[in-house]
Amino acid sequence: MSARRHDGVWPWIFMTPILVPLAIFFLWPLLRTLYYSFTTWSFFGEVRWTGLDNYERLLSDPDFTLALGNTAIYTLIVMLNVPIAVYLAALMNRPGLRLRALYRALYFLPVVTMPVAVAIVWRMLYSGDFGLINAFLGLFGIQGPYWLSTPGVSLVAVAIVGIWLSLGFNIIVFSAGLNGIPPELYEAAAIDGATPWRQFRSITLPLLTPTLFFVTVLTLIGGFQVFDLIFVMLGTGPNAERSQTLVYFFYSEGFLHNDKGYATAIGIVIIALIALLTALQFRLQRRWVHYA
């Protein structure tokens, strides 16, 4: 190992092509957004400095509390994605399993669909009177709810679509992680007479924790940013207001109420919340993530 603390000019040759566009198209817009969050600003350009007003208003706005709660619930449900994906990936990854490519493709299809088509098809599936889902539940004598218009249920319904959309992506990330585990470990364990469940617990799971961490971080960020899906699934229905999430709240204040200053304050708070949770995850990872 060399003792130099810095690598001289080389890192900057590598970093400049990134830092220049980053500064122009991300950092500068972000700083301006930060500034706008301390102002009253409609989109016609007149900006008036109002200090912390937007943030104070946010703290006492019941819509913010509602959106925060909905976002938390949605994110928690979508997190179910992680164990389901691990389980399915582990099944797919069994040595000697045939049709693996087919299975991967089946689970991956939703990842590449156009969001508008997703909404059309799922709204039909969820129909209370005529939907396939309730028809299926009916076979077992269960009376399904009006999925998209029953308070409490509609958020779950959207979260199910959220899981459906991203499951394939996570399965592929996990499959990759599983491929990285040396097969000798399993062979040795089998010789010692470990059951498949025991092998999963003491070999697969620990060695998969770095991947689990990565996926958990990304899923949480994705959950906190949910907007499009809520918008297309519940847009005009009776539950649009009750089910609004943080980014939906931001959009509606900024683009429907034309209160861009307040909306940017909401946006800054969303970033701060996600940053906080991500930092927390990075701290906690030392307790449960095993790096080889």
Partner: peptide, 8 residues
């Protein structure tokens, strides 16, 4: 109902 018109 409201629910029915949401779906259909």
């Amino acid at each position: 109902s409201v629910q029915q018109i949401t779906d259909t």
